[in-house]
Amino acid sequence: MTGGPWDAVVMGCSAGGLEVLRAILPRLPTGFPLPVVVVAHTSADTGNLLAELLDHCCALPVAVAEDKAPMNGGAIHVAPPGYHLLIERDLTFALSLDAKVCNVRPAIDVLFVSAAEAFSGRLIGVLLTGANEDGRAGLASIKALGGLTIAQDPDTAVAETMPRSAIDAGVVDHVLAPSAIAGFLLANANSR
C-alpha cells in the first residue's frame, strides 16, 4: 500500500541507531523534497554531536531542531539531547522538558504522535533499531491517521525490541533492511 503524497519523514532509533542512520541518511540526495526529523536516544550531555556527525556524511544539511523554527524540506532536523521534540500545527518545532516517556527524553512517541496530528497523517514514519518499546505508540498514531509506516527488519537490527514490538502490534506497513530504506523513501517522496 502506498498512499500519499507525503509531506514529511519522521525517524526514530535507539541502541545501535547511529550506524543505521549513517546507512540511510547519506543516501538521500540534495533536492530530497521532504523534511526529515530524527529522534535518537542519546544522553542529555552530548550536545550537537549527533547532528555534527551526520552533517559530515550527508548530502542534505543536518542541524539540531530549534524551538519555534519552521521545518524545511530537503533538510534533516535532529532532536536536541535531553528535550522532547514536537511539531506544532503550523509545522514549526517545539521543545519540552516534560516527563520522560518510555523512560527517555527525547521520546520517539512524542515526536511521532505530534507529527501525525500536525500532518494529519500525510507522513512517513520510520522506526529503527532499539532496545525498548518507544515508537510503537507513535507509529500506531501515524498509521491510524493514514500515514505510511516502516520498521527496520529486526534481523538486521543491533537491538530488535523496538522494530519487533511495532511489527507485532500490527502497525507496520513495510519491513525493510537499512540498505533498502533510503531508496524506498526516495521512491515515495517523489511520487508527489
Binding site: 514536537l86 517545539a94 519540552s96 505530534s114
Partner: peptide
Amino acid sequence: YARASLKRR
C-alpha cells in the same frame, strides 16, 4: 501555551 506539549499534559 505551545499547543503540542500542552495537549500531552
